[in-house]
């Protein structure tokens, strides 16, 4: 178990049997589609999977969503709210699942948070220091498209249309959602490219058809899973439901409760 910076307080540093796999990329590259495909594939192969993503924490998820809906958060406040959400999911979802031998698939990790913060003028060292609490993943797949224009076409094709935050409207980069989206996503793409070497991203060309990208991800993830030590918990061969995930996290809270 390795952290980017200082280890989390009160967390035992021990090797865990699970695998932490990150799917990163800007808005509209198909991250959630691939997480879903991978989850189905891994579960049919008998692996227990936990999937998680930004703002899905019990602690801060709702607060962030409410605040975003009102567009009322300041920039520093937003970054820290996201960091709180991340830490809660790391400690209460990801770590328990990893200890229980799950494959944790996360839709975005700290890199999106870093990119968004830096694009909004945060000190890059400051954001990195905060996220020093993050566990170094077993693999980071960065779904990369060639241009912001391609992202815009994808967002339109999905039928969702442009969203206020995905378009970076808070930054005042353009007069309308399209111009702002393009300008904002360009900045994000640049930031992701900058992080690629720093954090050892495995870059996946996401401009190719979904089937090809999915096949590539499957092959790469098989390799990550295969160098599992023999004692690992990845050989669980039973159908896995989300109840198991809950079990895994409640074991940890039970332990806490016992100590209390």
């Amino acid at each position: 178990m390795k952290f980017y910076g200082t280890a989390l307080p009160g967390v035992e540093i021990e090797p865990y049997p699970g695998k932490l796999i990150v799917i990163e990329g800007t808005d509209g590259v198909g991250r959630s589609t691939h997480v879903l495909i991978l989850r189905n594939w891994l579960e049919s192969a008998g692996y227990a999977v936990l999937d998680t993503g930004m703002t899905r924490s019990v602690l801060a998820g709702r607060g962030i969503k409410d605040a975003r809906a009102g567009h009322t958060l300041g920039r520093l406040t937003t970054q820290l709210y996201y960091a709180t959400d991340f830490a809660d999911r790391l400690e209460n979802q990801m770590l328990p699942a990893l200890r229980a031998g799950f494959i944790v698939l996360t839709d975005r990790y700290i890199y999106s948070a870093i990119a968004r913060a830096v694009v909004r003028g945060a000190d890059p060292d400051w954001v990195r220091a905060i996220y020093g609490l993050a566990l170094v993943p077993d693999a980071v797949f960065y779904l990369r498209v060639r241009s912001a224009e391609e992202l815009a076409r994808r967002v339109l094709a999905s039928g969702r249309g442009f969203d206020y935050w995905e378009s970076g409207m808070d930054l005042g980069l353009g007069n309308d959602y399209y111009d702002s989206f393009i300008a904002y996503q360009k900045l994000l793409l640049k930031e992701f490219d900058r992080m690629s070497g720093e954090y050892g991203f495995k870059v996946v060309d996401a401009s190719r058809p979904v089937r090809r990208v999915a096949g590539m991800l499957r092959r790469a993830i098989s390799r990550v899973i295969e160098d599992e030590p023999a004692t690992g918990g990845l050989a669980i061969v039973k159908p896995v439901s989300s109840a198991t995930v809950k079990e895994a996290s409640s074991t940890v809270s039970l332990e806490k409760a016992k100590l209390a």
Partner: peptide, 26 residues
């Protein structure tokens, strides 16, 4: 903006030292 989250977390005892620290920083 943060008060409701803090109040709920205290009531339901959701905090770890790290999240306690980060939410107060927020």
């Amino acid at each position: 903006l943060v008060k409701d989250t803090t109040r709920r977390a205290k009531k339901r005892r959701l905090f770890t030292p790290t999240t306690f620290s980060l939410l107060h920083a927020t």
